[in-house]
Each structure stands twice: as structure tokens, then as C-alpha cells.
Design a protein around this nucleic acid. Structure first.
Lengths: 239, 239
DNA sequence: GTCGCTTTGATTGTGTACGATTTCGTATTC
DNA sequence: GAATACGAAATCGTACACAATCAAAGCGAC
């Protein structure tokens, strides 16, 4: 059952650094980013190990890695689960992004080379294609990659790492608190951002990024009386 | 030999959550923060395990935790070493702090309760005492704790976690690139900050924090032709 | 029929053993 | 005499096995 989830690993040659543990972590992370693993799902060590054909030792390392990125939460003697950020954490994640990413976009606009622009264009195009093909999971992951690449262009590895963490967690937040399921077609913002970056227009890139993130936050349902997440609905509705 | 380094763990009841691994990580982290473990030192798994009376399994988990916080760097098949951030990373760490902490101080000033102020006062006092007693390591760690507590008062757990990471790494940067060894007596800045926080003066707290961080950065020796760190000098001069 | 306790099952936490890889010391050769 | 190649020791990476712990099922009492 879980084999079908993990076997088509998108990038098998991603990193083999530090053994196979990183590969497992990468596979699980992309599965989470693509919403094939939804918040609250249990990640049993034997189960994951069987899916990746590795032993529990390496699975444990991978889960710990993901726990440090706060993509999974480990309950002592209970196991690892895909994290379920509460509304407070959800708000904080986007607030932190609103604090970090605009200035990063500004820097990126001043440093972007034609090669960078081409890479971003390819990303947007791939995202569009995935969306057209109905693969909303892939589209969502590529959308995150877009933000991540901007941070990388800004050439601030430390802040880029923070943004990578926040983007990952945003995927969980979206899975839990997204309002309208089907409409993720706000790639206009990405197009506008790309234009500002290509023009080297720092202030505009900064403003566009800020408004983009505000828009994203406004599309979340963080009303105080909202559902306490679909913990049981998901856990019981799936198998 | 290493037993003498680790046995007097400052806070044995810190967290026993998630087994003993967290305790080992905490012990190593405080040792690094207090500059008792200096950048470049090797952290052999058996060695650390013997020091804490735990097996390699838990040591490995602890080292991986610290590696994710970038306090130690793990070289495949070589072992774990206390991280040696290069000058670029050193600059980035303080740039990131300058981006995050001022606004956090602003928020903290608006939310600080009398109990919070008392806690900060106690921290400053303890730092002063440690400095007077010649325990520069302890003083340095407490100085970091001061910044961390401000972030906690601001009630932004996500950003506070980032700041905690940056403060930790700052300790490594200071160990490597500090200019004048003996003069760390700039606790005046902390006093002024405390005053602004107690008065609930957000803008002043923000400005003070910013200038404080700029001062700290200016006290580092990040000239391009500086020494390539004291890797061997420290490793050979200590024992 | 429902609540509480006990037992059983499964899963995680930890320790240990074996294999792979690197490194350091030594001997050999140019 | 210096550089290189080889061998041995040490260390890390992974797998497996046992013990501790928790959750749920089974049973009994109210």
C-alpha cells in the first residue's frame, strides 16, 4: 500500500551524501510537499523501511532529520507522524516568511543573472504544466521551489535555509487550512515577480513578494472556531 | 580526559524528553556555547559515548541533532567535528540576526511583563557575576541566553527558533573571529536594552538591538586575509 | 449496558556486532 | 633523501536483537 506512494521517487540521484538516510528523508519530504502524505499520517519505522528497502536504523535517522525540519513530529514511544501545525504556528510561519522573503527578493533582483532567470522561467513553466495536467501536488511543490530558488539567487545561504524550512512547513499549513481546494491558479504573482527580477527592479520585487505572501495568508482559514484539523477524518477516511 | 569536560553538566534535569539523546545534545551544546569545545575539535562517537555513559546509537542521534543546528559538521566516514564557520557564514549569521532580532525586540518591548523583566535582570546579573569570576565561557553563554529570552518574550516561537540557531552559531563565530580576547564587557548594551524593554518602548528597543548587533559584528575580524581559523593551533595547544 | 482493570500485542528505544571506508605508519623504490 | 605504494589500525555506516513502553483488546464488576 505504501509502496505505491514511495516507489516512483522523483529524483533518485538527488543526494547520496551521508548514506541512504538522506535519500529516504528526501523521498519522504517530497511526498509531504506533494501532499501525498497528509498531516497526521503515521510513519511507522518498519513501514517506511519496507517502502524504501532500508533498515530501521536509516529510517530513524531520516525521521529525525524531518523532525528537525518540523515536517514530522515524533511522539515518544508512539512513533512519527506527519506534523500538524496548529493555527498559531501556521500564522507564525507566514509571518516569518513575510519578514524574510521580501528583502530576499530584493537582493535576488539585484543579483539575478540571465541563467537564473531562465531557471525560474523553467520552474514556472513546469508548474503550469503540472497544474494543467491535474497534478496539483507537483504544482504545489514546484511553487515552493520557485520561492526557494529566489532565496538561493539572493546568495544568502543562512537565510535561504530558513526560507527552505518555512516553505516546507507552508506545504503542511496549506494542506490543513486551505480554503478553496481547487483554485491554486495564482501563478500570476510568480509571473510578475519573475518580471521584476529579470528587470533587476529590487523595490518592486520586494513589494510584489510581500503582497504575494499576504495574499497567500489571506487564503488560509485561520478563524478561531475553525475545525481542529482533519485528524480523524483523514486517518479514518483513508484506509 | 574528555570526562573532565562533560561531567559537570550545568543542567542535568534539562530535558530527558526523547530519551537520553537530547541530554547528550544539550550537554555538548552548552559545552560548545561555553567555548569548552572549540571549533575543529573532533567528537568521536566512542569518545563522546564514554563521556556520557551512553552507547554510540544515542551519541549518533545527538550529533545529528547538532549537525542540523550547524554546531557540528559531519564528514562522511571521517567523524563529527565542532563546526568551523567560514568568514562568509560568519557574516551571514550576523546579518540574519540584524534582520530578525531588532523587530523581535520591538515586539518583546510591547509584550514584556514584570516577570519577564525580572528574569532578564537575573540573567544580566548572572552574566555579570560570571564575568567577574573570570568564567568567560559561562558569561558568553548567558549573554546568548539573554538574546534568546527576548525572542521568547516576543511570543513568536518560529522566529525564536531561528534566533536560537543563530545565537548558537554566533558562539562559534566569536570563538573563531573575535578580535580582542579579554574585553567582552559590553554588557552596557544589554542594560540599555533591558531599560527600553521595561519601559515598553518598542522603537528604542529595536534601535538599540540593531546597534548592538552592528557593534558585535564590528568587533569581529573578518578581513579577507585573516587567519584560516586556528584549527591546528587549538587542537595542538590544548592537551 | 457501561465503566474500569488486566492482559496482550505491537512499536519504539537502546545496545551490540559486522562490514565498508578512510587514514596513518612503514617499507620500498627512484 | 624524497616520494610513492602498501598494509594495518581505527572509525564510521548499517543491520540486527533485546528490552522498555504504550495502545488497544478482553474480561469482569457494578
Amino acid at each position: 500500500m505504501t509502496d505505491s506512494l514511495f516507489s516512483p521517487v522523483p529524483d533518485p540521484s538527488a543526494r547520496q551524501a551521508r548514506g541512504a538516510g538522506a535519500a529516504v528523508a528526501e523521498g519522504l519530504a517530497t511526498a509531504i510537499h506533494e501532499h501525498r502524505l497528509t498531516p497526521g499520517m503515521k510513519l511507522g519505522e518498519d513501514e517506511v523501511g519496507a517502502a524504501f528497502n532500508v533498515s530501521r536504523t536509516v529510517v530513524r535517522a531520516a525521521l529525525q532529520t524531518l523532525a528537525h525540519e518540523q515536517l514530522v513530529s515524533i511522539a515518544p514511544h508512539r512513533g512519527a507522524f506527519v506534523a500538524q501545525p496548529d493555527m498559531r504556528e501556521a500564522r507564525e510561519v507566514f509571518e516569518a516568511r513575510a519578514l524574510l522573503e521580501p528583502r530576499t527578493a530584493h537582493s535576488a533582483a539585484l543579483r539575478a543573472t540571465p541563467a537564473d532567470i531562465a531557471l525560474l522561467e523553467a520552474h514556472i513553466s513546469a508548474e503550469h504544466d503540472a497544474l494543467a495536467a491535474g497534478e496539483t501536488g507537483r504544482a504545489l511543490r514546484l511553487s515552493g521551489q520557485f520561492h526557494l530558488d529566489i532565496a538561493r539567487i539572493a546568495d544568502q545561504a543562512t537565510i535561504a535555509a530558513f526560507i527552505a524550512n518555512l516553505v516546507s512547513r507552508s506545504s503542511l499549513v496549506i494542506a490543513l487550512y486551505w480554503r478553496r481546494r481547487n483554485a491554486i491558479c495564482e501563478s500570476n504573482a510568480h509571473h510578475a515577480l519573475l518580471r521584476a527580477l529579470a528587470d533587476g527592479n529590487g523595490p518592486e520585487a520586494e513589494a510584489l513578494m510581500k503582497s504575494h505572501l499576504v495574499d497567500l495568508l489571506s487564503l488560509l482559514d485561520l478563524s478561531p472556531g475553525a475545525r481542529p484539523a482533519r485528524t480523524l477524518a483523514e486517518a479514518l477516511g483513508k484506509p
